[in-house]
Design a protein around this nucleic acid. Structure first.
Lengths: 223, 223
DNA sequence: CGGGCGATTGAATTACATCAAATTTCGTGG
DNA sequence: CCACGAAATTTGATGTAATTCAATCGCCCG
C-alpha cells in the first residue's frame, strides 16, 4: 500500500459495522464518510485537539494512548478493522491516536452522529461507549492483577480472537507498543514470548508473525 | 446509622445529579426510586447477576470490582455520593459492587431509564458511560505507568477533589481496598503513606483520617 | 480494661526493570 | 536477487522497587 496522509479525493461511502456484544440490541453504528490513508506512525489526532471527526478502521490498526509529562506512555487500546473510535461527548480529544502500520480509515464529520429525533443514534453511541468501557475494565484487571506472562498470554489470545485469524497471528504493532499497552518493557515482553516458544505454546516466524500452537494452554495462562 | 439490607418501606423520591464534565450539555441523569440501606461490606450486586436495578449513592461509598479465579481482586472504581452506577446495556452485570461502609443508595428499576422518544435519556446514558470511561482510562494510565508513591499521591488528590472535603480527608475504604484499587499491596500503600507523613505532605489522624498539609506538593508527585 | 482486627514496620525475596551487548529483521540500493 | 546498514528484537548481567513473610503496634468495641 502506498500510504499518504492527505485527504484522498475518493468520495467513497463505506458502511461499517462492529461486533455485537449482547444479542438484544441488533442496532449497530454505521459510519459514512470518505476513506483516508495514514502512513505507519502518522498521527490521526492528538490530545487536546478539537474532536471534529470520528473514525472507523477499514484496514490496518491504530493505537490510542496518553503520555505523562516525562514521556511515559500508556496505550489504552488498539483499534482493528471494524472498530469505531474518536467519538467524544466534549469538544476535545482526551488522548491521542496514531496509525500502527499503513492504515485506511473512514473519516466522518462528527455531525453525522446527530440524532434523527428517535434516539437511535444516542443509543448506538451509548453501546459504543459501554463496549469500550468493558474493554478498558478488562485491561485494568490485567494491569492491576496479572503477572508479565499472564499479560502477554492474554494479549495474544485477545488479539487472535479480535482479528479472527485462526492460529496464525500477524502482529500490527511493535514490541514497544505491546509493552506500553501491557505496562511492561520491551525486554520483558520479548522474554515472555521466547519463554512461550520454548514451552511449545507459540512459534515465532519473524517477529511479527506468531503461530499459536496450543491456544487453549495459552488461554489457561490468562487465569 | 443503623444499616440493614432489606428494602426499606420508604417511598422516598430522590433526584440525583452528577458532576458535569463539559459545559455544553447541561442535561444530567436523575434517578428516581426508593432509598435502601446497605451495611458495611454488603453486596449490592454480583458479577453475572441480572442487571435489574440501577443505583445512585446518597451517603457512604461503594466499590466496583472483578476477581480472577484465584481470588486476585481489581477494584475498577469507587462510587461516592452523587454517582450513578450499575447501568448496563446487556442483561447481566459484568462486575460486582459492595458497600465500603454503611451506605444509603437510591435503587431504581432499570426500566426508569427508558427513553421518552426524544433520545434525551440515551444521551444521558451515553454521557454517563463516557465519563466512566474517562475515569477508567485515567486509572489505566496510573496502573500502567506510575510508581507506588505516584499512585497513592494521585489517589489521595483525586479522592479529596471528588469528596470536595477541603484538606481533611475521611477515607471510606480500608488499606486493602486502596491496595486493590491501585494494584499494590497493603504494606506498600502503608509505607507510602508514612513516607508522605515523614515528608510533611500529609498527617494521619487515625488510619482513616488524612490531613493534606501540602496538597499542591502531593499533586506534583502525580506527575 | 482486654481482645481482636487492621495497620504499620522490618527483613528477606523476587519479578521485573535497567543497562549493555549480540543478533535478527527488513528496507533499500546496487 | 543479493548485500548492506540501520533499526528492532533478543539475550545476558545486574540492579531495584515492590512483594512476601513475619512480628509488633494501636485503634475500636464490647
Amino acid at each position: 500500500m502506498h500510504a499518504h496522509s492527505s485527504l484522498t479525493p475518493r468520495p467513497l461511502t463505506a458502511a461499517i459495522a462492529w461486533r455485537d456484544a449482547g444479542g438484544i440490541e441488533t442496532d449497530r453504528l454505521r459510519l459514512v464518510g470518505v476513506t483516508r490513508d495514514y502512513a505507519r506512525g502518522k498521527e490521526i489526532f492528538g490530545e487536546g485537539e478539537k474532536a471534529e471527526f470520528v473514525y472507523s478502521v477499514i484496514r490496518g490498526a491504530v493505537r490510542a494512548f496518553r503520555v505523562l509529562a516525562d514521556g511515559r506512555r500508556q496505550i489504552s487500546d488498539f483499534y482493528l478493522p471494524g472498530d469505531v473510535f474518536g467519538v467524544e461527548p466534549g469538544a476535545d480529544h482526551g488522548g491521542s491516536a496514531e496509525a500502527l502500520c499503513d492504515t485506511v480509515l473512514v473519516v466522518a464529520r462528527r455531525s453525522v452522529l446527530v440524532d434523527e429525533g428517535d434516539g437511535a443514534m444516542s443509543r448506538r453511541l451509548w453501546r459504543l461507549a459501554i463496549d469500550e468501557l468493558k474493554r478498558c475494565q478488562d485491561h485494568l484487571l490485567t494491569l492491576g492483577c496479572r503477572t508479565a506472562s499472564e499479560r502477554v498470554a492474554n494479549f495474544l489470545s485477545d488479539l487472535a480472537e479480535r482479528l479472527d485469524c485462526g492460529t496464525t497471528l500477524e502482529l500490527p504493532m511493535s514490541r514497544q507498543d505491546i509493552a506500553d499497552y501491557l505496562g511492561l518493557t520491551i525486554e520483558t515482553v520479548s522474554r515472555c514470548l521466547t519463554q512461550f516458544q520454548v514451552a511449545g505454546l507459540i512459534k515465532l516466524h519473524g517477529c511479527r508473525t506468531v503461530e499459536l500452537c496450543r491456544p487453549r494452554a495459552l488461554g489457561d495462562l490468562c487465569e
